[in-house]
Structures are given as structure tokens and as C-alpha cells.
Nucleic acid binder design. Sequence first.
RNA 1: GCUCCCAUCGUCUAGAGGCCUAGGACGGGGCCCUCUCAAGGCCUAAACCGGGGUUCGAAUCCCCGUGGGAGCGCCA
Length: 468
Amino acid sequence: MAIRTRFAPSPTGMLHIGGVRTALFSWLYARRHNGTFILRIEDTDRERSTDEATQVILDGMEWLGLTADEGPFYQTRRMDRYREVIDQFLKTGHAYHCYCSKEELEEMRNRQLAAKQKPRYDGTCRNRTEPRPGVSPVVRFKNPLEGSVVVEDAIHGNVVFDNMELDDLIIARSDGTPTYNFCVVVDDSDMNCTHVIRGDDHLNNTPRQINMLKALGAAIPMYAHVPMILGQDGAKLSKRHGAVSVLQYREEGFLPEALLNYLVRLGWSHGDQEVFSMEEMTRLFDIKDVNKAASAFNPDKLLWLNQQHIMRSTPEHLAKYLKPQLAALGVNVTDDRKLAAVAKSQQERAKTLKEMAQNSRFFFEDVTSYDEKAAKKNLGAEAVAPLSTVLAKLSALPEWVAPALHDAVNQTATELNLGMGKVAQPIRVAVSGGTVSPPIDVTLEVLGREVTLARLERALAYARGQGA
RNA sequence: GCUCCCAUCGUCUAGAGGCCUAGGACGGGGCCCUCUCAAGGCCUAAACCGGGGUUCGAAUCCCCGUGGGAGCGCCA
């Protein structure tokens, strides 16, 4: 049978890395087995759902490349179908009207809690034949009173729940709208989901969903309840450490494949391998190999992985992401070839594309001032000799390519009997304004002859001024 | 409170009874390389939650604790 998985977020909060990981697992599992990946938006809570959150889900999934084969489906557009099933349940005796008031239920709950019992509906209206006048009832699912339910879970194994622990949950509110657990059941059944991969906070909901699925006469999917992601401090993920919108990671300069690589390694591994390409991930991932324990989010490792992926990327791929990062700094680049050349020169020295952009501004913008400390140390009177010497050599260069540039700088150092640092650093400050850049020969090549010479002239004048 | 889930270095993990003197990775410390920043190489500190069993032998299996988490809504 063809595998069908789904990701079903509710747009009541921003999609964060916890949600992304379950989406990733579902997506990988479907890809691995040539199955179908479905996206379903669970927006039945009209009060708390927002268009903004929905958009983050859509944009985030697209940015990450977790494309859906079917959907997005919106539950708010399936109301008729839910009502149909509710009526069917009512007719077949799988559900009944409950006229208990919220006050009565509240009182019942308090009573049970006081008696150290698990709060649950006692079934008062199960056998009611007469409606209560003036009360619009809710609809409750008639859960089996005896026996047990076994959740077959790919990660946890078989988990047994006693039906006595379950009560008759509300499937339709008094205003007629269906509730979450019910909608999930109808959807998973209608969409023929063969595997339900979701956070393990849903494990406790599963037995009641299975009972409803049975009442529906639907097939029971294979479940996989993946452990949660914790914050850095081991506490529940919060805004403080990563429960921010996934799109935040795009802004921060993370590569989608790096974020996904980080996430897939949370609770899953393949020997000692740390870096995975998307192709390797889809080929090697198996939901059965996922851990049971929750894991803490570690930003340092994410950063390291991002760097690893940056180093392994092609300059053209990086250029695509570097461009908007530069634009965010007010640097609009039109020369894609140069952009790729810059990315290539920087890919070993940036943990994020944002950082790369910040360190690459001088390739595109004029150097109008020098970093104070850098200038003081490297553009003093002693820089006059190396700068003027190298300037002369570079001006005479027939071909503006890194090896030739390297030789010119090298020869300057030899002739003046100086260390490479005494020559390269003044040049670096001259062309970049600071002390950090790719290797000097590569930097100059990318910068080009005109720009390099002009900046060297300017720095030379500056250094001469310092000597006076 | 009740039910369910979980438990190896600070963190992510390897480990499916002997291969464990518990391996790898991030981060930390040290050294090397070096024109800056990086990258890279080498070295190093650092863990089986506790207690009982089972077994010739347990990080691995069982039980009990302890700790953490989730669910118990006319929220999803």
C-alpha cells in the first residue's frame, strides 16, 4: 500500500522548529517510501487562528523545500463533511446529545479532583431520552466502557490504554462546530493517511482517536509519536530559545538544508555521521530509528552545521541567499558573477549568510573610512614602504589573477625583508577598511584592478599623513 | 490526584548481554598550521539517575524508587 503521511499544524501560533521537525520526519518518511505528503491546516479554532500564522506555515514550508504533494487543506472548509459524520454517529448510536451545563461539568470535575480521581465525564446523558428544554446540547462520542486500546507506535512500541480511563469526549460544541480530536479522525480517514507522525504530546489523545476511527469503520494508521524539542536549558521550548517563527532562521542567514540537517539529528542518527545532504537524509532516514527521549535545542551546533553546509555549497547556491542578506544591509548587487566570486571567497569563514554579508560589504561598497584600531596598527608610517612597493608591482601586472597577485605581495615582502603580515595586513586594511577578509590575493582579484589600486593609493596617502 | 511517556559526557548521540578501558559530534581547554578571520590537523577534560534482581557476564533485560515531560477543556 502506498504510504501517505501528513503534517497538520494549527495556525494558532508561529510555526517553530518543533513543528518543522515533525513536518520533516513526515516528509522524509513519505519521500523515502515514494509516498504522498499531505499538508493540512487545522484552523477550526477561529478565535486563535491567524492569517499571519498560516502564511508563516506556507512560506516556511516552501523555504525549507518541504513541499506538499496534496493540500494545503483547510479544516474550516470541511465543516459540511464533519457535520455529516456527526449525524452519522448520532444515527448509529456512536454519539449522543449531552445537555449538561458547563457549571454542572465544572462541579463534577471539582468533585472528582477532590476525591483524587481523574476528572472525566460520568456519562449522565448517555441514556437520556428527553431533551432538556432551552438547552442546546453538545454531541459526545460514546466511548467503549470496557476493554482496552492498543496504540501501535513505530517509536514507542505498543502502548496500552484502558477504556475505563477514557471518557465520552465532546465532538461537537453546542453551536454545532466540531472539535479537534474529531476533525483529526475524519480527516485522517478521508485523506487515507497510513502513518500519523506527530509530537508525543498527542500520544494520550490517540486511544480516543482510534476508538472513533473504529466507529467510523476506518483503517487504523501506524502512529509515530516523536519526542519534543526542549529549550537550551532543558525546559519547554519558549520564545527565549527558539520557539520563534522558522522564518527567523532565514533572516538570520541559515541555509534550509542546514536547519533541516540539525533537526533531523535531534532524535535520530546514522552512525557517526553529522552532516547530511538532503539526498542522504531522504535515503537514510527511517521513523523507526527515532529516539524516545526529548532533546534540547543547541544553537551552537546549528551554527556549526550551517557553516559545514556553507562550505559544501556551490558559490552559485550561496549567492542566491547572500543577495537578500546584502540587500537587507542596503547593498544591492546586480553582478551575479561577482556575487558568486565573493561567496566562494567567503564560504570557509562564515557561520551564517548574514555574517557573510556583513563581512562582504567592502566588495561592493566604497571604503570611506578605516577601522580605528586597524588603521592605527597597520596604516602607520611603516606601511608606506610596503604599500608603495606593492602598488608599483600591481600597477605593472599584466594579468589580474590571484597567483600573480600572490607573487607580487610575496616579492614585496622579500624585497623589503618583511614578514607577510607586515605587507598583507596594510593591504587588507586599505582595501577592506578592517583586518578581516579572505586571503589577500583572492580578495584583490575579486575586487578588480581599478578598485584595488584606487584604495591602495588612498591608504598610501593616509599612511604618509600619519608619518608627518 | 489519576493515566501515559521518558532517562548515556554541559548538549546531540553510538550502544539492541560479552567487541565498553563506554565511541563520535558540538561546545570547552591545549598544541600545530597561518597574511587577517576562518577552515583544517593533533591532543585533552567530561556520562551509563539510584537501588534491587535475572545472568558466568548488564549501559543494554525485569522490578521498585527518583527525576523530568505529556494528557485529563464546549483549546488545538
